[in-house]
């Protein structure tokens, strides 16, 4: 299982970034909870529109199975759903804590977006 977590910093003890499309970093972790890749999402932070769509595509291209973030809008959700990526929304604390919740099965997965479309 590959888990992606939106993060405000590059390491596993950084706080989760509540934004998905415009998250500062996206950390990708393996099933042992080790960071395997740090994606600098600056290009998407400054994207015109469709930041969530592009971030969703980025995760699909990296064959991620689960996304952990704060907010997920409708367009991003559509992309993640099409890519078969499960989303845990409204997650906070550090990346490490959020991943532990996924591993323990404590986190619930969303069946719909939890925020309106951003512009």
């Amino acid at each position: 299982m590959r888990i992606a977590v939106t993060s405000t910093g590059k390491d596993i003890d950084s706080p989760v970034d509540p934004r998905f499309g415009r998250a500062r970093y996206i950390l990708i972790l393996d099933e042992k909870g080790t960071v395997s890749e740090v994606v600098d999402n600056t290009a998407n932070v400054n994207a015109l529109k469709g930041a969530g769509i592009q971030a969703g595509k980025l995760l699909a291209d990296r064959k991620v199975d689960v996304l952990v973030t704060g907010h997920c809008g409708p367009n991003a959700f559509t992309v993640l759903e099409a890519a078969g990526i499960k989303v845990a929304v409204q997650q906070s604390g550090t990346v490490r804590q959020a991943v532990a919740k996924i591993m323990s099965g404590e986190a619930e997965f969303a069946d719909k977006p939890n925020v309106e479309a951003h512009w």
């Binding site: 469709g50 769509i53 969703g56 699909a60 367009n75 559509t78 992309v79 099409a82």
Partner: peptide
């Protein structure tokens, strides 16, 4: 199509192509 579109309005994902008409 996804390479050409600069507005994220058409996005190939897996085995489908998604469209976002409002973009």
């Amino acid at each position: 199509c996804g390479e050409v579109c600069r507005f994220s309005a058409i996005v190939p994902i897996g085995d489908v192509v998604l469209t976002f008409p409002e973009l």
